[in-house]
Design a protein around this nucleic acid. Structure first.
Lengths: 158, 158
DNA sequence: TATTGTTATACTCTATAACTATA
DNA sequence: TATAGTTATAGAGTATAACAATA
């Protein structure tokens, strides 16, 4: 009996307290989910990040909103948003229109092409969601979302 | 009756399906936790990211490991690790020693100063963990960690 | 004066490709 | 040949500061 000689494969590192830390486990789960999202879209021949998807949904559901409002909703600086919108606009998914009521702001909107793309993206996101939730029951998924919201509300915002 | 006139404050954007998507909720929770981590360390006058903390723990618990082994454990490319180690080494927290058995590899180790710093950092992380878990019972935290591990194992790794 | 969007700049994280030293 | 570490390079995400147009 006894195991076969066993080649010196990766000898499993000691991670100490890390696996008991919520922040650590959360970060690793998030990283795996991000990779799954990327794999789902890459396999489908589409290129999109979770952040871009969220942005497109926000613009679709709030047509005409300004860059400031969008940046606030995304929790990023308005200067950070500029190159992101540049890229999406270059791909023909959205447009910056002049606001008729306030010359300082842009009214953001999806193009017809962007609307169509978002429908497709949403389907891919649903497939992705099914996979990352595949080991969880519906009740567990609901519980998980609730607990994550509690975590978010308990964290201190700089 | 009825509410007072209400100034046109931020009119709460419509987020559509986003709040029902596990990936979206997970990403936002992670973002809030990251901000809390940063705030905790900044308030204490210390500078460290969650990734750097994890790295230091790994080196502390596996003294002498190589950069390749560490990169694998962190899930990043070996070239990505180089500037990260440069910075930590410049801060006097760790050293790259020549391996006596394999001239190609570096044996990583914390300095005495790094050991001391890690003790302090660990205390700050515990305070941070208390805060992000403040809205959860002990049982809920355990449940949450378990569910997150299930999510991670269900996600497809590129 | 204050706000919006932009630009310039800088830093970090990430990767790929090519190079050097060693095995 | 193959592996470990480094460098060069590039792209994305993040920020601050300063500027022009507009309110």
């Amino acid at each position: 009996m006894g195991r076969p000689p066993a080649k010196p494969t990766s000898p499993k590192l000691d991670r100490g307290v890390l696996p008991t830390l919520l922040g650590y486990v959360l970060r690793r789960a998030q990283s795996a989910v991000f990779a799954d999202f990327a794999a789902t879209f890459q396999t489908a021949g589409a290129a999109l990040t979770p952040g871009e998807f969220g942005l497109l949904v926000l613009v679709a559901r709030n047509t005409g909103l300004s860059q400031m409002a969008l940046a606030r909703a995304l929790g990023i600086d308005r200067s950070t948003l500029v190159p992101i919108l540049d890229r999406l606009q270059a791909r023909g998914l959205l447009v910056r229109r002049r606001s008729p009521t306030d010359g300082r702001t842009h009214a953001l909107a999806l193009t017809p092409s962007g609307d169509k793309a978002l429908v497709r993206f949403t389907g891919l996101v649903r497939a992705h969601e099914r996979r990352i939730g595949s080991r969880l029951s519906t009740a567990e998924t609901r519980t998980l979302i609730g607990l994550l919201e509690k975590v978010r509300s308990g964290a201190r915002s700089l």
